[in-house]
Amino acid sequence: MVRSWLEGSRETWRAVGFGLILLILLVVVGRLLIPGFSSVRNLMTILTLAVLLFLPSIGQTFVIISGGGGVDLSVGAIMSLAEVVAAQLIDGHNRAVLPAGVFVLALGGLVGLINAVGIWYLDIPPLVMTLGMAGIADGAALVYTNGVPGGAASSVLQFIGTGSVVGVPVLILVGVAALIVSQLILSRTGYGRMLRLVGTNRSSAQAARIPVGAIIIATYVLSGIISAFAGMILLGYTMTSYLDAGSQYQLTSIAAVVVGGTPLLGGDGGIGSTALGALVITLINSIVVSLHIGSGAQELVDGAILLLVLVVYGVFRSGSFSAQWIRGVWASLRLPKTAKGESP
């Protein structure tokens, strides 16, 4: 049952194991370095922060699974835009939440649709297309607010962002619900099953009559909608809006997916592993922040740890950490000498 639930390939499993070990390791390190790190309250805070990263990473996961160099650099900008627009529309009124929510999700979906059109019909590489749309969405937020974002979340939204039910932050519940729903979409719907096949081999998918275009378009639209949703949630968390509140998620959402063990070439990966990845990244971040070492050193340590994790993981994932791997590294380090006079 559990196996089919977290269904995935062997590499994904190895990644999940690796992620769990890493998670435990990080908590232990945090506990050793920072007093009160492993208190329930602090861990809950870290979990809520992880949910904020996890939400946009869900859309990112779908897009990366869709393959063909698929990546969505507009998630952060859509989050910012959604947050700013929602704040202004809601402006503290609970009854405005629903219509504003619908409007904002539609807006996110529209940005995703434009992404998809550029990528599928005009053959623009996803990296560049979504980057361009990120610029446009950022600019749109600027123009919309005239540089001065206003408005605020309402009490309902605040409750979602910062409240808690029987001691459990609502955000964590939102994260768990999002995990379950998106994993079900991925593994139990025709869309999800076809998405994996499209990401694995587009021409074979076409030969099997899978509507490749529709799947790709749906994926980017979905990612846009999810990012807009994440922006709304972010508004609930921050209560007032900032202009580029979402920009930090542009690249970290990709890092979360990759640290979770999803390769960027498409087809493989799952939502569960992305959740792990988001958790790992948030943990690293919180540990580094709690060290109070100044923002430069913070970024440095952050990057170095990420690099280390990726290397260790990259070597382990390919199952290649073995005597043969060491021999291989040694052999290719030595190659330039033996290959004299044969340079291409």
């Binding site: 890092a255 390769p263 170095a304 690099l307 990259g314 070597v315």
Partner: peptide, 10 residues
């Protein structure tokens, strides 16, 4: 064996 996108990002 890290993917270039994330390696260079880090």
């Amino acid at each position: 064996r890290v993917q270039p996108l994330v390696a260079t990002l880090a």
